[in-house]
């Protein structure tokens, strides 16, 4: 049997314990042997590099060598479902949740969610923002009923862990150590570079409700008395997060 199906090729490529398919040869017609490892290696290295680019903070948190080992397990359990490497790693949060060796780092899945959101924001569609003056021009009753359309690049990520602090401490030199407790992160993309902002809990509730399409009045009521409406709206508009008021 000298024919090699792509199923056989794949099986041996993803599992080094499997024998190299018999129909593969070296230049003398002998079994391909070690030559097959070029493909095993290329696939593992290529996908590992894609994951390293996608999750720089996770990589710093667990260290280079550990991340490579983790990526090796991930890529065999979750090979890409599409040729768009910019989307590869979407199952990383769930994978980390169930990955025994990182049980002592329970914040990793949420940090991975934040990194995925930042990457999605980077590749999201462009959209022309409206300004806070557009909001101010509304008559009072229309203001109360106003709903926002958010730019495609805006994301909100909430966690019971201090994910903003962890992200900043690992991505920016001289950043303070992360605090404790839950954090909500708003991601905006004024031009091309996504920016994570730490929100207060009331501002996060308000923003989440507005992103769901609720009115200003409803979102303010949900956020409660602790909401600094002026500051929250100013940030959304100066960051170009709102593309339409209706």
């Amino acid at each position: 049997m000298t024919e090699v199906s792509q199923s056989q090729f794949r099986a041996a490529m993803l599992d080094s314990d499997q024998p190299v398919p018999e129909g593969l040869r070296d230049k003398a017609g002998a079994p391909a042997g070690k030559r097959f490892n070029v493909y095993r290696n290329n696939v593992a290295v290529g996908l590992t590099e894609a994951l390293e680019a996608a999750f720089p903070v996770i990589r710093k948190l667990v260290g280079d060598a550990f991340f490579k080992a983790l990526a090796g397990v991930y890529l065999r359990n979750h090979p890409p479902a599409s040729p768009l490497m910019m989307h590869y790693g979407a199952e990383m949060p769930g994978f980390l949740k169930g990955f025994e060796p990182v049980r002592a780092l329970p914040y990793l899945p949420d940090v991975a969610r934040l990194e995925i959101a930042i990457r999605q924001s980077y590749h999201a569609a462009d959209a022309a923002p409206v300004t806070v003056e557009d909001l101010g021009a509304l008559p009072p009753d229309a203001f109360a009923r106003a709903r926002f359309t958010f730019a495609p690049a805006v994301r909100l990520v909430s966690s019971r862990f201090p994910i903003h602090g962890i992200w900043v401490a690992n991505m920016q030199p001289d950043a303070p150590k992360p605090g404790k407790g839950a954090e909500d992160v708003l991601i905006t993309r004024p031009k091309f570079d996504p920016r994570p902002h730490l929100l207060s809990r009331p501002a996060a509730i308000f923003t989440a409700r507005m992103m769901e399409g609720q009115s200003l009045t409803a979102a303010m009521a949900a956020a409660g008395g602790g909401l600094d409406l002026g500051e929250t709206l100013a940030r959304l508009f100066t960051e170009g997060a709102i593309t339409r008021i209706s």
């Binding site: 792509q6 493909y39 696939v43 290529g46 996908l47 090979p79 890409p80």
Partner: peptide, 11 residues
């Protein structure tokens, strides 16, 4: 690509 799995290499 095989069975909807993409290997990021030219095989």
């Amino acid at each position: 690509t095989h069975d909807n799995q993409f290997f990021n290499d030219l095989l």
